[in-house]
Amino acid sequence: MRIVKELVKSDIKISIFSWNGKYLLKFEQGDIEQTYKIDEYDIISEDDLDKLITDEFLKDLQQQFITMNKMFTKHSEHIL
């Protein structure tokens, strides 16, 4: 697995990896993460991966993090 890039935007840690013919876009906030896989053949250049990380996409990611956190808290409160 090769690290292509790491950065932080809007309190979200973003790691981009290249592995097994795919790019993995990993987004982390606290203890929760979301990973998206993109076939390397679907991207012309690694620079195009930055174009996927728009403000609108980050806003949607943030909403998903909120939903994931609520779900995890709800289902784990009896064991944690």
Rank of each mutant, 00 (worst) to 15 (best):
67 T>L: 08
76 S>D: 05
76 S>W: 02
72 F>W: 00
61 L>H: 01
17 F>A: 01
66 I>L: 07
51 K>S: 13
43 I>C: 03
24 L>Q: 06
12 I>Y: 09
27 F>P: 02
80 L>W: 05
20 N>I: 06
29 Q>T: 07
41 Y>R: 11
50 D>M: 03
75 H>R: 08
55 D>M: 00
35 T>F: 01
14 I>R: 00
78 H>Q: 15
54 T>Q: 10
3 I>R: 04
76 S>P: 04
31 D>Q: 13
76 S>K: 04
49 L>H: 06
31 D>V: 06
24 L>F: 15
68 M>D: 15
64 Q>S: 13
52 L>V: 09
5 K>I: 02
20 N>H: 12
2 R>G: 04
11 D>R: 02
79 I>P: 01
80 L>K: 14
32 I>M: 10
38 I>S: 07
6 E>L: 04
27 F>S: 02
65 F>T: 01
14 I>M: 09
38 I>K: 05
8 V>P: 00
56 E>K: 10
69 N>K: 11
67 T>M: 10
27 F>I: 08
52 L>R: 00
62 Q>H: 10
63 Q>N: 15
76 S>I: 01
41 Y>S: 14
10 S>K: 06
64 Q>R: 05
5 K>C: 01
39 D>M: 12
24 L>G: 14
56 E>D: 15
39 D>V: 08
4 V>I: 07
5 K>P: 02
52 L>N: 12
70 K>M: 04
42 D>R: 14
33 E>I: 04
64 Q>P: 01
40 E>A: 00
22 K>T: 10
56 E>M: 12
72 F>H: 13
22 K>V: 03
42 D>N: 12
76 S>N: 09
53 I>R: 07
61 L>C: 06
30 G>T: 05
65 F>R: 09
10 S>W: 02
12 I>A: 07
16 I>K: 01
23 Y>M: 07
41 Y>T: 15
54 T>K: 05
39 D>C: 14
28 E>T: 08
8 V>S: 09
18 S>E: 15
63 Q>H: 06
64 Q>Y: 11
16 I>W: 05
51 K>H: 13
50 D>K: 01
76 S>T: 10
59 K>L: 13
4 V>L: 13
55 D>V: 04
34 Q>C: 02
57 F>T: 00
34 Q>T: 03
4 V>Y: 07
46 E>F: 00
52 L>S: 08
